[in-house]
Amino acid sequence: MKRLMRAVILASLPLMAMAPVAMAVEPDEILADPALEARARQISKGLRCLVCRNESIDDSHAELARDLRLLVRERLVAGDSDAQAVDFIVGRYGEYVLLNPTGKGSNLLLWQAGPLMLLLALGLGGLYLRARSKAPQGTDAGLSADEDARLRQIMDE
């Protein structure tokens, strides 16, 4: 049984090695001009599939990703530059479609929020520790005579 499992695993290794090569781009999408196709592939690798989330439209098999790939190719055939094609897609779907969003505008706040929160937490932690070290130490005076008598009374019951 172990030999059979080992043979199956060894036989499937070449197939697993070829899996990343299989792209989602279908033959009917490929442009005749190799230079335009290379540009389209490069742009597609930077655009997020809105269905699959953290997968580029070049790797996604979703119908929306196919539509976006076709739209990119249409824009390139129409004569748009790479930046114009990306701007057209971003204008239509928002900056969320970019796998690597820009660090401008409202995204700047998102990019800086993490480090700012870390600095704020470190500052508040430092202030807490400083105030705690300056706080007067409590004295352990023990129980008063009344408290001791009451405790004995409770224990005897």
Results as ranks from 00 to 15, higher is better:
residue 28 D to T: 09
residue 32 A to L: 10
residue 35 A to D: 13
residue 35 A to F: 10
residue 36 L to N: 06
residue 38 A to D: 13
residue 39 R to Y: 01
residue 40 A to L: 04
residue 41 R to S: 12
residue 42 Q to Y: 10
residue 43 I to S: 09
residue 45 K to Q: 14
residue 48 R to S: 15
residue 49 C to I: 02
residue 51 V to Y: 04
residue 51 V to R: 12
residue 53 R to V: 13
residue 54 N to P: 00
residue 55 E to S: 12
residue 56 S to F: 01
residue 57 I to T: 10
residue 58 D to C: 01
residue 58 D to N: 11
residue 59 D to K: 14
residue 59 D to F: 03
residue 60 S to G: 07
residue 60 S to K: 05
residue 62 A to E: 11
residue 64 L to D: 14
residue 64 L to W: 05
residue 64 L to C: 01
residue 66 R to I: 05
residue 66 R to P: 00
residue 67 D to K: 12
residue 68 L to A: 04
residue 69 R to P: 05
residue 70 L to C: 09
residue 71 L to R: 13
residue 71 L to N: 02
residue 72 V to R: 08
residue 72 V to D: 06
residue 73 R to E: 02
residue 74 E to Q: 14
residue 75 R to E: 10
residue 77 V to Y: 03
residue 77 V to W: 04
residue 77 V to F: 03
residue 80 D to P: 02
residue 80 D to Q: 12
residue 80 D to C: 10
residue 81 S to H: 08
residue 81 S to N: 08
residue 83 A to V: 11
residue 87 D to M: 06
residue 87 D to Q: 14
residue 88 F to I: 02
residue 90 V to K: 07
residue 90 V to N: 04
residue 91 G to I: 06
residue 91 G to K: 07
residue 91 G to H: 06
residue 94 G to V: 05
residue 94 G to D: 07
residue 94 G to Y: 09
residue 94 G to E: 07
residue 96 Y to E: 15
residue 99 L to V: 05
residue 101 P to V: 02
residue 101 P to N: 08
residue 101 P to A: 04
residue 102 T to E: 14
residue 102 T to V: 09
residue 103 G to Y: 05
residue 104 K to V: 10
residue 104 K to W: 04
residue 105 G to C: 08
residue 107 N to C: 01
residue 107 N to H: 12
residue 109 L to M: 10
residue 111 W to V: 14
residue 112 Q to K: 08
residue 112 Q to P: 00
